[in-house]
Structures are given as C-alpha cells and as structure tokens.
C-alpha cells in the first residue's frame, strides 16, 4: 500500500570536517524524529564511514535511514550518491578512496569523527575528506548508476561546489536523477531564478551540518517504502509513486 514519506536525504554527520561535533548518529536520528521526518539520508563528504552507525541508531529508534555519500568531483561539483545496499555504498566508498588524496588538518578544516550508534567517537578519519576526488562529474554519476544508486546534484542554487557554479549548467548527456535545491530557495523560486533547472526533477533537502538544520527543508514522496528504489520511482512518476511538493 502506498504511504507518504517526508524525506531529508542530505544530512552530514560529525565525520564531515565542516559539520558540528553534535552531529552524532543517535542525536541525528532523534532530532529527525522530532522534526517529523520519516526517512533521512546520510551523505558525508567523500565518505560513508558513519552510515552503518546511523542505520543502527535508526533501527533502534524506529527511523528509516538511507546510506549515501556526497562526492566532490574533480571540477569541485558536489554529487549525492544514495544507495539501498550497504555493499554498493562501500564499493562507491572504495572508488572514492582510490581517487582522493591528502591528509586532514583538524585545526584548519575540523575534526572527522567516526562514531558508534551511541555517539561515542571510536576513531578519527585521517584522509582529507574536504578535498576533491580525481573523478569527473560524468564518471561520478556513471559509477553511482553502475552500482545501482541514485545520483542527485547537490545544492545547484548555491554559489560554490555546485553543478551550476562550477560547470554553468547540466552537461549534455549527464544522467543526473534530480537536482537538489538548498534551503536558500524554494523549489518554485529556484525554477524561476535558474533556467538551467528546466526539464530536470527538483528535490529539496537541508544539507544539515548542525542538529537544528535537520528537516528545515525536505521532499515528500509517495511509495510503498522509504527506500531509494521507491524514491526513484516517485521521481519518475512510475506505478502511482509521486513527489508531492
């Protein structure tokens, strides 16, 4: 049976150097529930290292969690890859690691904390997650699709690290599944201000780096489960699935 899901599929955890330390797995799940979200997506910069812990916290607290990663392409375009299968996400992670160089300096960029499901820090990631990979935006999208994931261009309405800021418009032939509008604009405003969005499916997520930002904007869809598979169907309008906002 079809149900309605409020989805905020672009949240960072304390693994992202630019996110607050308070963004632990359990804290995120509890805040998301408080905000009335039905499903969240975890997309840290160039790493899926905290996804499993958030999934565990979500299972315990009764919140659906989708695993993902926000890849920084060589053009410094941010692309979200969302996956139903943890195995596929880990394959994506491996590819990113092979194409990402440098070591983090916590004093300059911030801590990169790996946590357990109770928000205890178990390790620090030493790779420079804030850096750009050597993968082109086309390669990133292609790889996400090969692994069965959904590819969304992050915050296209922002002036940095977005498909529009870096590359001007959606490259011809890029099989991007949706464009994300940041909390700066409503989807309707973005459609007016950015003619490059024409013909593409638009979604809106919070890109939260702090607890209070979780759920400030989200996308509502109808499907049978809060999964990537159903979200994709909703984007395509298949089998009576649909995006509601």
């Amino acid at each position: 049976m079809l149900a309605t899901f409020h989805a905020d599929l672009h949240l960072h955890t304390c693994l992202s150097p630019c996110a607050e330390e308070e963004m632990g797995p359990l804290a995120i799940v509890r805040q998301a529930k408080k905000k009335g979200l039905d499903v969240i997506g975890i997309c840290d910069h160039n790493s899926a290292g905290n996804v499993a812990a958030v999934r565990q916290a979500g299972r315990r607290e009764g919140l659906a969690v989708i695993g993902g990663v926000e890849v920084c392409s060589e053009e410094e375009v941010h692309i979200l890859g969302l996956f139903d299968e943890q195995e596929s996400l880990l394959n994506m992670q491996r590819l990113i690691e092979e194409n990402l160089h440098g070591e983090n300096n916590p004093e300059l960029f911030g801590q990169q904390s790996l946590c357990d499901q109770n928000d205890a820090v178990v390790a620090r990631e030493t790779r420079l997650l804030i850096g750009a990979t050597e993968l082109s935006v086309d390669e990133v999208v292609e790889k996400i699709h090969q692994l069965g994931g959904l590819a969304v261009a992050s915050h296209v309405d922002r002036e940095s690290f977005s498909l529009f800021s870096q590359l001007g418009f959606v490259p011809r032939g890029l099989q991007i599944d949706a464009l994300e509008i940041s909390p700066l604009h409503s989807v309707a405003e973005a459609g007016d201000s950015f003619p490059q969005t024409k013909g593409y499916r638009l979604v809106s997520f919070s890109d939260a780096h702090r607890l209070e930002e979780i759920g400030t904007t989200f996308t509502t869809f109808r499907g049978i489960s809060p999964s990537v598979k159903e979200f994709r169907k909703a984007l395509l309008g298949e089998d009576e699935r649909e995006i509601l906002n």
Binding site: E75, S136, V137, E159, F164, S165, Q166, L167, G168, F169, P171, R172
Partner: peptide, 22 residues
C-alpha cells in the same frame, strides 16, 4: 564556468583549468 558566462566579454580569451565539455 558560471562566472565566465556572466562576466567574460565577446572575443575574450579564457584561461582555465577546466577540461569538461561544458
């Protein structure tokens, strides 16, 4: 590329690091 489209003038040459078809 967004700033190039907004600010570069006709028949300017453009110095860039980008290789992308865009």
């Amino acid at each position: 590329i967004s700033t190039v489209m907004a600010n570069a003038k006709q028949d300017n040459v453009w110095v860039t690091w980008h290789l992308h078809p865009n």
